[in-house]
Design a protein around this nucleic acid. Sequence first.
DNA 1: CCGGATCCTAGACGATACTG
DNA 2: CAGTATCGTCTAGGATCCGG
Lengths: 130, 130
Amino acid sequence: MDEQKAPSNLGDVCRNDETAAVHVRDILDRVGDKWSMFVVSMLEDGPQRYGHLARDIPGISQRMLTVTLQRLERDGLVERTSYPEIPPRVEYALSPLGESLRGPIDALAQWAYSHQEEFTSSRNRYDAKR
Amino acid sequence: MDEQKAPSNLGDVCRNDETAAVHVRDILDRVGDKWSMFVVSMLEDGPQRYGHLARDIPGISQRMLTVTLQRLERDGLVERTSYPEIPPRVEYALSPLGESLRGPIDALAQWAYSHQEEFTSSRNRYDAKR
DNA sequence: CCGGATCCTAGACGATACTG
DNA sequence: CAGTATCGTCTAGGATCCGG
């Protein structure tokens, strides 16, 4: 008894397995940082070049695009391919692991989209009371 | 023509609707901050008192528990009920909106749990090259 | 074209002490 | 018991300039 079943929700993950909880935190950090999921969404249609991403993501600085891509590559969510040409060409694509993240992320995006009304009205109500 | 369909993934959400993208960012901020989802996971089993949360969430400071709960309440994910007794008693519970977030969050938690191996091995491989 | 290196600021977070 | 107030630290993120 006390079989190690795959946990089915966040609470089970956090409570059953100390190290798993740490990894969940790492993922949530990546998901929650300012640009990562935006970049991932840009790669959903296929590989993109650095310059294309820089142009199409409004407001991102060169530095943040660079570090975001590096972190995503480090985490194995994005694959970087550089072609030794002049001028240099570098392409970024979702890895299989990155592709597999699309499901959960899209679910979250849909939730955010369909509940934005309740979300903001709750904030307005709360702020009005101060 | 140009009917506004519900977007089915993160890219559609971000590209189709400027304000929706902002709300998605707000949600992702909340999901990504250090304690929010941990607190939410603690409330999955039912309402909890402040002190109980403080004891059961390892490493959280009083301040961070307070501000986390306030933010969750502001966003309408958690409901606060204070009973005017001596000594005071305050209970926090998931709102219906908060309950509805469990699906997407649990999906993400499961993803993190089942892919932690690839995640960390990718990081080790990446770090080894520097 | 694709970044790396530097400097800077705002806000997230933590420790501690105090209060209705 | 359930917070608030205050202070210090640390890091994410932005602006800008430089290099292969």
